[in-house]
Design a protein around this nucleic acid. Structure first.
Length: 205
DNA sequence: TGTATGATGAACT
DNA sequence: GTTCATCATACAT
C-alpha cells in the first residue's frame, strides 16, 4: 500500500446507481483540458459534484433499458467508466457507469460546484477572463449547473465516451471526497417522461 | 429513406 | 409557467 494516489475503495463503482449516485456527492470531478479548448493544453478544471441522477437497468428512462446500441455501448462497460451522449441536437451529458460489465446502469452528473476543498491541491478552476488572461477565479455555480452546461464548461464530448474515470493520468477522472458525507435531498429526476415519479435525483445541501 | 423523440437550455410571458 | 432551437439516434417503413 505505497501508492500516494488517493483512490476509491475497490468495488466503489459497481455497487449500483442508487448507492453510487449518493456517494458521488462531494466527490471531485477533474478535467485536464485538451489543446484547442480555449484554455492552454493541460489546464485543470475541478468541481465538487453537487447533483446526480441514477439510471437503473430496469428503469424505462434509462438509455440501456432497451438493450445495447452503438450509442449506449459505454454504459455497459464496468463501473468507473464514462458514458457521454449527445442530446437535443446541441448538448452533451456525462454519466458514471455504476454496474459490473454488461449491466447497463449509470449516474448522470448534473452539477458541480467550484468551491475549494480543504486538503486538496486542486482547489480551484482556471477560467479565461474576458480579456483572455487566465485567472484563478472560481467558475460561477450557474455555469456548471445543468448537465449540458457542465459538459460545455468542462469540454466534455464523445471523445471521452468510455474513458476510465478512475485513472488520475487520464483526461477526466474522479477523486473521493475528503470529508464526511454531505447532507443531501432526493427528488424526482428532471426532464424525463418515463418513470418520472421515482426520487432518484440527489442534490447536495 | 423517412420521421418521432429527447436524462436541455435560453428566451421568453 | 411556455416555446423553441436543433440533430443524433432509433426504429418504422
Amino acid at each position: 500500500m505505497s501508492s500516494s494516489v488517493v483512490g476509491f475503495p475497490p468495488g466503489f463503482f459497481t455497487r449500483g446507481a442508487l448507492a453510487v449516485a449518493q456517494d458521488l456527492l462531494g466527490c471531485m470531478l477533474v478535467r485536464r483540458m485538451p489543446a484547442g479548448s480555449g484554455l492552454p493544453a493541460g489546464s485543470v478544471l475541478t468541481g465538487v459534484i453537487a447533483e446526480t441522477e441514477a439510471y437503473l437497468p430496469d428503469d424505462p428512462a434509462c438509455h440501456a433499458h432497451r438493450g445495447r446500441t452503438a450509442r449506449n455501448a459505454a454504459m455497459f462497460l464496468s463501473g468507473g467508466h464514462a458514458y457521454v451522449y449527445f442530446i437535443y441536437g446541441m448538448h452533451f451529458c456525462v454519466n458514471v457507469v455504476t454496474g459490473p460489465e454488461g449491466q447497463g446502469e449509470a449516474v448522470l452528473l448534473r452539477a458541480v460546484r467550484g468551491a475549494p476543498v480543504a486538503g486538496c491541491v486542486l482547489s480551484g478552476t482556471l477560467v479565461p477572463s474576458e480579456s483572455g488572461a487566465l485567472t484563478n477565479d472560481l467558475i460561477p455555480d450557474a455555469q456548471t449547473t445543468g448537465p449540458g452546461r457542465l459538459c460545455r464548461v468542462f469540454g466534455i464530448d464523445r471523445a471521452l465516451d468510455g474513458a476510465d474515470l478512475t485513472d488520475p493520468a487520464g483526461p477526466l477522472y474522479l477523486l473521493p471526497r475528503t470529508g464526511p458525507p454531505p447532507p443531501f435531498s432526493a427528488t424526482p429526476r428532471i426532464g424525463i417522461r418515463k418513470n418520472a415519479d421515482v426520487p432518484w435525483r440527489f442534490v447536495m445541501g
